[in-house]
């Protein structure tokens, strides 16, 4: 398997420590490769390091040791501006808590990454509107996050993650705060993105969610315990 050659993400011997009086090891020598267009789920008990791993891949955090390479770019040695560019254009992040800007409307939230990516106003709005209608929120464009339901907020967040057309989508428990039905719709969106050739990495602790992916990485105590190919992924 020439996995590395075709890889979008390479996590190579990565550790993450926190020094708070004692030393907390969130990740301990983790290696993982995501090939282009793959769909991977991460499972594991609470506190096992899933979010930490996702944040490192998304350029939100930097490793204590090891390398994280995204699209050929080594994030462990990247400067602040380069990391910002990765977060803005290479990666789309979907959070469990949505993380929408409270004073911006749905369409403005979706357009926010485009502001930092230097798009002009008309193009930003046009793109944001089409993304919102793709996720079924064409009639909620001027609503503030507080005027939307949890599931609607998560769809705004997904539209935002897609705005700069990143090849890599990262989602940290995207269905954790929405009801089962909405969760199912969100997973359908991910399936579509996968079908369209995007690379997906999704953290979940729900078995049925993880099974939508091609493979499941099991993490425990900051280490990768096993990698499981799902029936879905084998076709």
């Amino acid at each position: 398997m020439s996995e590395t050659a075709n890889a979008t993400v390479v996590v190579d011997g990565v550790s993450k420590h926190y020094d708070l009086g004692g030393r907390v090891t969130a990740l301990d020598d983790v290696s993982l490769t995501l090939s282009k267009g793959s769909y991977t789920a991460i499972m594991g008990p609470s506190g096992s390091g899933k979010s930490t791993l996702l944040n490192l891949v998304g350029g939100l955090d930097t490793p204590s040791a090891g390398r994280v390479v995204v699209d050929g770019r080594d994030l462990s040695s990247a400067g602040e501006d380069e990391l910002a560019a990765v977060r803005g254009t290479d990666v789309g992040f979907v959070f469990q808590t949505f993380n929408l800007m409270p004073r911006l409307t749905a369409v403005e939230n979706v357009a926010l990454p485009l502001v930092f990516d230097g798009w002009d106003r008309d193009r930003r709005r046009e793109r944001a509107l089409s993304l919102l209608s793709d996720v079924g929120l064409g009639d909620r464009i001027d609503h503030l996050p507080t005027e939307l339901s949890g599931g609607q907020r998560q769809r705004v967040a997904i539209a935002r993650a897609l705005s700069t057309e990143p090849a890599l989508i990262l989602a940290d428990e995207p269905t954790g705060n929405v009801d089962t039905e909405t969760g199912a719709r969100i997973l359908d969106v991910f399936d579509d993105l996968h079908a369209a050739g995007n690379t997906l990495l999704l953290v979940t602790h729900e078995r049925h969610v993880a099974e939508r992916a091609e493979r499941v990485v099991h993490v425990e105590d900051g280490r990768v315990r096993s990698i499981e190919e799902t029936p879905e992924g084998t076709d």
Partner: peptide, 11 residues
């Protein structure tokens, strides 16, 4: 949030 979606320090 802004930083997570690509804001640089100078933004």
């Amino acid at each position: 949030i802004m930083k997570a979606v690509g804001a640089r320090n100078r933004d």
